[in-house]
């Protein structure tokens, strides 16, 4: 996790986003890990030297009071910069959004992502596109996620920053033709973001990715038939305990350490009554183990039975004379 940064929240004008409450704007953006990976994969298509801008749409959900955004999916939208104007392929955006919407009816367009090192005029133009019109973030404020990974044309660790853009000044009225410079000006206010995993299985997969893909670009996903996953987890716990023991062996009298020790001793002392009744405990365990063994036994019988039946049938049919 990136270190927790502090942000100052200001009351902003929300001219272009009438649906947003004026008092408290969004305070956090949660990026689901799959969506982040999609974004990283899309922006890494950016050609290094021509520096063509790659942008895309962010999809996800907002909390009821609009204080939280959750990014769940992202797709690329082609765009072309020519001088001070930019063309975004509205049609692609619309079709892909509608298709996603079919499978995820609760999600909506949250904003967009890009990968540039600075916020410039074009950023405002694209933001304007996402802040207005149907099938976009309107009437809610759009958010902008930037992945900065190019430093002097060299690839470095990607840095994520999220902004909310609010229009300032008098909005331009009337029909607009294309997204040309100076239609609306935007203030981009940084808001904190965090990367989350929405389900435990996904978290396990992410941990797996992190542990296995150090130094290699790919690895084999092994789905174990046996209990090797269990033993890997046990080893993880053992190493955690070792760490804790090492920690305890050189504690000082600081408050944090005292709290830790207190927590540990409280947990160890809180023992259910049953654990002191040894014969009863042994009886329960043996009953449990026997239950499990019986299930194993019967399951094995079924498995063998099926195989036997298949073999007998094959032999019987092969030996038939007529």
């Amino acid at each position: 996790m990136p270190e927790q940064r502090s942000y100052m929240h200001l009351v902003r004008p929300n001219v272009a986003a009438p649906g947003a409450p004026a008092a408290n704007g969004p305070s956090t953006v949660k990026i689901q890990a799959p969506a982040l990976f999609q974004i990283l994969e899309i922006v890494s298509k950016q050609v290094l030297y021509t520096d063509k801008r790659i942008i895309g749409t962010l999809l996800g959900s907002r909390s009821d009071d609009l204080s939280e955004f959750e990014i769940k999916h992202a797709f690329m939208v082609p765009c072309n910069e020519t001088g001070d104007s930019v063309t975004i392929e509205d049609h692609t955006h619309k079709t892909l959004y509608q298709l996603y919407k079919k499978a995820h009816p609760k999600d909506a367009v949250l904003g967009w992502f890009g990968s540039s090192s600075t916020i410039d005029n074009t950023t405002g133009l694209i933001h304007d596109f996402y802040s207005k019109g149907s099938d976009r973030a309107y009437p809610y404020p759009a958010i902008y996620l930037n992945v900065d990974y190019l430093k002097d044309n060299r690839i470095s660790e990607p840095k994520l920053s999220t902004y909310i853009g609010a229009a300032v000044g008098k909005p331009v009225s009337g029909v607009q033709l294309g997204w040309k410079a100076n239609i609306n000006n935007y203030i981009f206010t940084p808001i904190p973001n965090e990367v989350i995993s929405s389900s435990v299985t996904e978290k396990i997969a992410l941990n797996n990715l992190r542990e296995k893909s150090v130094n290699t670009a790919s690895f084999v996903l092994d789905s174990a038939e046996d209990a090797s996953f269990l033993s890997a987890q046990l080893e993880a716990v053992t190493s955690n305990i070792d760490k804790l023991l090492a920690e305890i062996s050189n504690v000082d009298n600081s408050d944090a350490n005292l709290d830790l020790l207190r927590l540990l001793s409280n947990n160890l002392l809180n023992k259910p009554q049953l654990l002191t009744n040894l014969p009863e405990l042994e009886r329960l365990f043996s009953a449990h183990n026997q239950d499990v063994t019986l299930i194993e036994y019967l399951t094995k019988v079924i498995k063998e039975q099926i195989e036997l039946s298949a073999r007998l049938t094959a032999t019987a049919e092969a030996e038939k004379k007529y």
Binding site: F37, L40, E41, V43, S44, Y149, I155, P158, L209, K212, S213, A217, S218, F219, V220, L221, S223
Partner: peptide, 9 residues
């Protein structure tokens, strides 16, 4: 099944 990571990922 091989899991492949993009460079940036």
């Amino acid at each position: 099944i091989n899991i492949h990571n993009q460079h940036l990922v």
